[in-house]
Nucleic acid binder design. Structure first.
Lengths: 366, 366
DNA sequence: AGGAACGTTGACAGCGCTACCAGCACGGAC
DNA sequence: GTCCGTGCTGGTAGCGCTGTCAACGTTCCT
């Protein structure tokens, strides 16, 4: 195992400059703004750097320039599939840039978020990506005072701190309920877990759609603060069924819960969608593969992360994006679990997705 | 220009020292090794720092000390559920320390890994967590020359670079097959996707177990390099079934594939486990909730990440862990999908996990 | 009592890089 | 021919912190 070799052997900018026959500051400029050098010196520095295998010391750079090349990302969960897709988008976009990602997990606590935000800001990040629009007053003030670009992701809201990319969870839920109405369902239950602000807004959308139709009843709603899981979906559905045996559809706040409901129905020999229709949220990959295939609301998670990071990097580099506030919308993907038609009990083996029908709905701003 | 006030009135260590009536270096020591100060000065510096709201400048610290407080983590995927659990463990362990996590995604490419490793090492990380034991020769050399502690995670191997925590994928696969043998199954298929080194070793374990029993046949194995998914599980199973209609069990290299097989069986009205038994790998949460509940090999992912980070931090701080090489083992969790008993078709609603039977197997080193 | 041993503290000198501004050569405008 | 702008280059002076090591005061031993 290697031990204590230190500065010795390390190539510094000065060495590169010497080999290239220029001053250190000129060499420095080469790495930050090559255009500013004459072509001759540019090539000399370039080949000197390559020859010596020069790697800049980021700490020294940060110290001297009062700037870092770190993008801070605050997300509420590392386990949730939703965020892993978003993160993948962010990392993919950052890879081709010179910025690196610093990730922190708020665990769905805005107090924790505030703490982490303070920590980030102290390090003068190049940019920041934060989840949602429900920061503490203090966090909000820090964000507004920050001298770096900021992107809020996952949802839309009235007062963006800076840039914003997401969709309306409220509208998405309303669209899901509208779809169920269109299929003739009336007694529609709601199942939700870990009621974070976005799940809450889905519930709000559900409630408003049901009220509009004069069909809302409190007992149709079952929620819990517990983290979501497939098993929990089954348990909550069991509760719901006990309260409201006449229910003819369930809207689940996410796909894990929907899968849990599916399995619970199977256990109870409840026919889907004949007796009960199911609609999930997010459209994770397995929804198209389940038996019966499960209707869900598709959200553009990878694209959201990717676009957010791309926008942020552009803004950092001084090219403000044309649309700093972007609604990525959603799609209600209709599948067997909420189809009025009796689902074919023997579809082609690989045809799980064959019955998909897209219902695209741009999410409007309220 | 002279002594300009630092922009944004940033509090420096010197200010804290002045207010506390000590020298800057003493104040500095307070933050690195409070024990070295007398109690009187310690409290003075502490209150001065709090009063001024001092936040250390990490770039300056890194520059002066030739050291950073960054732990580099190299993982092959951001989407895979397996790694999100590991990551959660790592982040949880790092939160109570002063170290921050720098995450990079190798996308299952050891060449990409080598590139990222070089990048990390140039920044003198405090420690490194790398996935697996299959690095390039060059990467291996860099790791061995690195002057920071290193933990290899996810599996066990003969020549740890430094520390190592994982389990034997080979043994785990053999245990899964042994379980199926014990249930009377003989024609056991293998379904695998994205054949990374660890999946490959599961396949090796399967092959050896089958050969030991004189039951191996190449046509029982279906694999692909494509990324894994539930849908893919169904498709691969379809292939397998076409080749080997007499198959009586399937061992899936991961749980997503197993779920896909479950759905495909449902589509084809194949009874589980009467006609075909299913065993998955990883024991994700939904396995206990499916209908029928699905047997899987439980791996300790969160614990692996958490222990790896904890061990690493201890090593960085000079307290080398007692067991630098740790086998976390695995458990074959037997459920309905591979139970010789006819599964109860109406278990208690919430009793999905009631039929679980643990078969603990420590994974030995070959 | 004298001295060694220990614990605590501070002065100094950078770490490797970049901000700032001055200086230089060149060419076009007058 | 002079002036001045432009483009490029380099010198100076730190950025905020810590490694090193010497110097100090105290305690404990002989």
């Amino acid at each position: 195992m290697g031990r204590k070799r230190t500065k010795s052997g390390k190539i510094r900018l000065a060495e590169v400059a010497e080999l290239a026959g220029v001053s250190p500051i000129t060499a420095s400029r080469f790495f930050r703004n090559p255009e500013a050098l004459s072509v001759a010196k540019r090539t000399r520095v370039e080949s000197a750097a390559k020859e010596l295998g020069y790697v800049p010391n980021l700490a020294a750079r940060a110290l001297a320039s009062h700037r870092t090349e770190v993008i801070g990302v605050l997300i509420p969960s590392l386990t949730n599939n939703v965020f892993s897709d978003v993160l993948r988008g962010i990392y993919d976009a950052s890879e081709s840039s010179r910025y690196s990602i610093q990730l922190s997990n708020t665990r769905y606590s805005i107090l924790q978020e505030e703490k982490l935000l303070r920590l980030f800001l102290a390090q003068k990040p190049a940019g920041l990506i934060v989840t949602g629009i429900d920061q503490t007053v203090e966090s909000r003030a820090m964000l507004e005072a920050a001298d770096c670009p900021i992107v809020q992701i996952m949802e839309m809201g009235p007062n963006p701190v800076d840039m914003m990319i997401g969709f309306s969870h409220y509208d998405a839920a309303r669209a899901a309920i509208a779809h169920l109405f269109a299929q003739g369902h009336r007694r529609i239950g709601f199942v939700g877990a870990r009621m974070d602000p976005r799940v809450q807004r889905r519930l709000d959308g559900y409630v408003s759609a049901m009220k509009d139709a004069g069909l809302f009843e409190q007992r149709l709603v079952v929620t819990t603060g517990t983290p979501t899981s497939v098993t929990l979906g089954g348990a909550l559905f069991t509760d719901l069924l006990a309260r409201e045996p006449g229910m003819d559809a369930v809207f689940c706040a996410n796909d894990d819960l929907a899968l849990g409901v599916l399995f619970e129905c199977r256990r109870r020999e409840i026919a889907i969608p004949e007796q009960i229709a199911i609609v999930g949220f997010n459209d994770l990959e397995f929804m198209a593969s389940a038996v019966p295939t499960l209707t869900s609301v598709r959200t553009n998670r990878y694209e959201m992360g990717n676009t957010a990071a791309t926008m942020l990097i552009e803004a950092i580099d001084g090219r403000r994006p044309e649309h700093p506030v972007l609604d990525l919308g959603f799609k209600v993907v209709e599948r067997q679990s909420s189809s009025a038609r009796r689902p074919d009990s023997r579809p082609a083996a690989s045809g799980a997705g064959a019955a998909n029908k897209m219902v695209a709905l741009p999410s409007g701003h309220d």
